[in-house]
């Protein structure tokens, strides 16, 4: 197995173009476990840890965060909890402190596991994934189009993930994850919610309950329409219980879970409805309370 060590981004793209079978390696928290546990042996590893610009984030002109693919969960938690609260909440649920110190959002996207903790909050806010190749330059893939199958994403063989471009929060966000222990657990299912008080749009993301991470489109549409229709954004009043319940039902219906060793399909659907109900209640309470205190 070859170990490729590009010292810069252009060199990395050149190597990936030259060796499309090379597996990118960032924190190694997923790749190394795979290597240790399975007989899978990639032809080459492309070590991206020597490229400093991947480890940085910046704010773009239109209030988005451009999150370098090598930014760790620890950085997200410490530096971006205000701008990207949903992603930061998800990052807090990843593994152990050691894993959060090494693991990266870019790596999570690269692995594209249906259980990846970063994915639901990125779906909920409509992030875009910036990918690059040596010959074609950069392009932005909407997160909705990024996950193409179980552990598959929309990258071409010669492309690398450069960054995630994520709108900063304009309203309360929540993330909840079910696991059968209280830390260091892969999601049995997870749910992210983002309320955008400017556009008055609701975003969602569901993890571990379908072949890929997905949005709950119907639930988003329903809640967006109800909130607008009832003028609830402006009235800042509590949500009717029936709305919360219907939203939760629609989230559960959006999922396509299976029975596996981590949980049953029936349980996953049920749990998603509970998480949807609770996260919506927390998010709306926060929105309402902020408005109360502001008023």
């Amino acid at each position: 197995m070859e170990f490729l060590t590009p010292m810069g981004w252009d060199e990395a793209l050149a190597m990936k173009a030259d060796r499309p079978d090379a597996l990118p390696l960032a924190g190694g928290t997923d790749v190394m476990v795979e290597l240790n546990l399975t007989a899978h042996r990639p032809a080459a590893l492309l070590d991206l840890t020597r490229i400093p610009e991947l480890r940085t984030w910046s704010t773009t002109a239109n209030e988005h965060i451009r999150l370098g693919a090598g930014v760790t969960y620890r950085q997200v938690i410490d530096e971006l909890a205000d701008q990207l609260p949903g992603l930061a909440m998800a990052a807090r649920t990843v593994g152990s402190p050691q894993i959060r110190n090494r693991g990266t959002v870019g790596g999570n996207l690269g692995a594209a596991s249906p259980a990846g903790d970063s994915h639901p909050p990125l779906l909920a806010v409509g992030a875009q994934i910036e990918v690059s190749s040596k010959t074609r330059g950069s392009r932005l893939i909407p997160i909705d189009e990024f996950f193409t199958g179980v552990k598959r994403n929309a990258l071409a063989p010669d492309e690398l993930i450069a960054a995630a471009v994520i709108p900063t929060a304009r309203g309360p966000q929540q993330f909840s994850k079910i696991g059968t222990r209280n830390a260091m657990v892969i999601a049995v299912c997870s749910f992210a919610l983002a309320l955008d008080a400017h556009t008055e749009v609701v975003g969602t993301g569901i993890g571990s309950a379908a072949p890929t991470p997905i949005r709950a489109d119907e639930a988003e549409r329903y809640l967006t329409e109800v909130l607008q229709g009832l003028r609830l954004w402006r009235r800042r009043s509590p949500l009717p219980e029936s709305v919360v319940r219907r939203f939760a039902e629609l989230v559960a219906e959006a999922a396509a879970p299976i029975d596996d060793v981590r949980g049953t399909a029936v349980y996953r659907r049920h749990a998603l409805s509970v998480l949807a109900r609770r996260t919506l209640t927390w998010a709306w309470d926060e929105y309402w309370a902020t408005g109360q205190s502001a008023a």
Binding site: R92, T93, S176, K177, R181, N182, R278
Partner: peptide, 14 residues
């Protein structure tokens, strides 16, 4: 950390 589910943020007491 004191709640069932821990930092996975599944309940605030509900």
């Amino acid at each position: 950390r004191e709640q069932p589910g821990g930092v996975s943020n599944t309940t605030h007491g509900e």
